[in-house]
Write a protein that binds this DNA or RNA. Sequence first.
DNA 1: TATGAATGAGGATTCATTCAT
DNA 2: TATGAATGAATCCTCATTCAT
Lengths: 210, 210, 210, 210
Amino acid sequence: MTTAGNTARPRGRIDKQQAILAAAFAVFARSGYAQTRMDQIAAEAGVAKATVYSHFGDKEQVFRHAVQALSDAALESNLAVVEQLADPGADLGATLRSVGAELIRCYCSPESRALRRLVCAEAAQFPGLTETMDEVSGRVVRALADRLARLALTGTLRIDDPDLAAAQWAALLTGPLRARYKFGAEPLPDAEVQAVSAGAVTTFLAAFGH
Amino acid sequence: MTTAGNTARPRGRIDKQQAILAAAFAVFARSGYAQTRMDQIAAEAGVAKATVYSHFGDKEQVFRHAVQALSDAALESNLAVVEQLADPGADLGATLRSVGAELIRCYCSPESRALRRLVCAEAAQFPGLTETMDEVSGRVVRALADRLARLALTGTLRIDDPDLAAAQWAALLTGPLRARYKFGAEPLPDAEVQAVSAGAVTTFLAAFGH
Amino acid sequence: MTTAGNTARPRGRIDKQQAILAAAFAVFARSGYAQTRMDQIAAEAGVAKATVYSHFGDKEQVFRHAVQALSDAALESNLAVVEQLADPGADLGATLRSVGAELIRCYCSPESRALRRLVCAEAAQFPGLTETMDEVSGRVVRALADRLARLALTGTLRIDDPDLAAAQWAALLTGPLRARYKFGAEPLPDAEVQAVSAGAVTTFLAAFGH
Amino acid sequence: MTTAGNTARPRGRIDKQQAILAAAFAVFARSGYAQTRMDQIAAEAGVAKATVYSHFGDKEQVFRHAVQALSDAALESNLAVVEQLADPGADLGATLRSVGAELIRCYCSPESRALRRLVCAEAAQFPGLTETMDEVSGRVVRALADRLARLALTGTLRIDDPDLAAAQWAALLTGPLRARYKFGAEPLPDAEVQAVSAGAVTTFLAAFGH
DNA sequence: TATGAATGAGGATTCATTCAT
DNA sequence: TATGAATGAATCCTCATTCAT
């Protein structure tokens, strides 16, 4: 129903929904919740303001939908990266470094930073928002834990508590990053990515390797 | 005449400054930047709205000063905790666990959460804000690195790069915390504190202990 | 469909525009630019304040439109009077006196005084305002010059430079009026009108009659 | 203390009065009544705002004093010009043209334009202001009438009603000027001055010469 | 008198939201 | 459903004026 639509009108509605959501993503990410005007969203979506209302009810709903969509996307790309651990190859260290680097890049992508800013900013006013975020990182860490558990099973790693190990690896990857890369607009230098990932792997293997 | 002030008024100016700043801290932390009304700040400070303006110029300046003061306070209490590592005592593990736990508590104190929310929320609109935050965590990590370097010198730990070790320890402490404890309003259960701190120490010592 | 308007609403937009402009005329004329509150205009127009803004953008634009409309009206009534010279009748002096008196009355009508006050008052802050006014009096004088040129052609008057003669006649009509009648609120006594007009005609005919 | 100042204080008060008035002139003339802030006046006068209040009571009084002083100055310079008619010399036309030109320049001096703007603008809100202005132009016209009467006595001119003649001459001088020169900021071109003055003299002499 | 600080009343403007078409 | 127009509530900021010193 979403993609078929070769007859003229049935898709109009859905197209507009999508356009509105896309516009909302963009504007909220750019300006934050409070700074965002419904007019901007409508304009960027190419529809009338009232149309936005008839689709989503009010500003808060538009926001929640936008955040949800950003979260879904972020979750998906993170999981895709984690999946690369399914087949670690010969050089475990190298694989960990590469996957770690990609996780860092996901974590610092413009979309992720924007999402983090939005959630963080509105955590107080929008109950349930932090839960959404916990959900995302929780599922990523769990997926990571799954992979690590497999590697422990095969004896590649020496892990008692895969959840803890996963959480700590994630922490070692994202913790040392400067705030300006986590929240700010500054582009993340590749050297930083490599260094942090390498450092994380060294410590991680010292604790969980052989 | 300005500083003696045992008679009633000469200090009035400064008192009001302080009162306004304190009120601003509170209100911004509660409601976020955009939701905060200048009236609220003035009322909470017990002064007229125009007085706030004559002291700080406009809302943005009030905000910046408030954030600065919160940052200063946060930095100070973090540094005080780190200083406890100066004399690690006999049981290094226990000391690390205890200091780690206190650092976590600092990190999740209501003030710190509020500060994080505010900075994060307004990072896009207020250039320089993330730098302020980097500065704080940077200095804490550096102080931590100083302590770790001493312990490496005395042979208590085995550390090549104290800065990296410090950053990683901090990461192991704060990274695994759920978003609801970092940004949300939920109170931080002591069990979580203990568990995370203990886990961090184990991994840390595995990498940097004997 | 827009102009027929036997169904209720299509003309609503235009009606409101008109209502707002009319209200703005009145209030600005009464109180001057700075003293005028947007609320007053909105109230007097019977619309919401925001409607005024959505139609005109800001106070300055409302003002400019109001002035423009007042100017247009003033121009029109002045031209109508001047047109009476097209057929001067047998007694030229009497006609000139009568037309002069009417021009003085136009010049001192409440609307004209208000317009003069507004333009004069805000000349410094609103570039282009004086030009608008010059335009009005310029066109009136030119129309007058046209009439005088005709009378010169028929030999009724002896005029070399009709533009100069017109400007001077206008000057003789309005120049001798006391400020209180040009700008003030005082009603213009008919005796004053007659006297000034008669004096103007005498001098004018001495210079340009036979 | 600022200029003469050999004894220390006694003149301080008066100096400040003067400074305040001078500043008020300048600022009101620049910005109009409503746009003028008491702070600006105080700042430009180099005193504290409260000092302005202790000298003049409130904004309106400051304004009235400023207008009065501007009026006095304007009156004085106009009268000085008129006085040149006391000894008209051999070529009456030339003298009239020269005096007329100077009157036009007085009339369009920055101070006079400012004064006209201020009075005109606030005529509605400040009763008595137009009277002040009538007083000025009234006295100038009367002085002019005095001179014309003398010239009539000596047979140089042929005037029945010197007051009317004076008013009309003044009208012929100022009436034809464009609004931008009367109220606006545009500098008055000398050619305009000459032309208007010459035209006025021609018509005036046609009516009142031999 | 001179002043720096404080204030209360007020005003322009914005924006989420709703209606009538 | 889509829209242009209308709105009312809210908010930042300004400024004439007053006090205490």
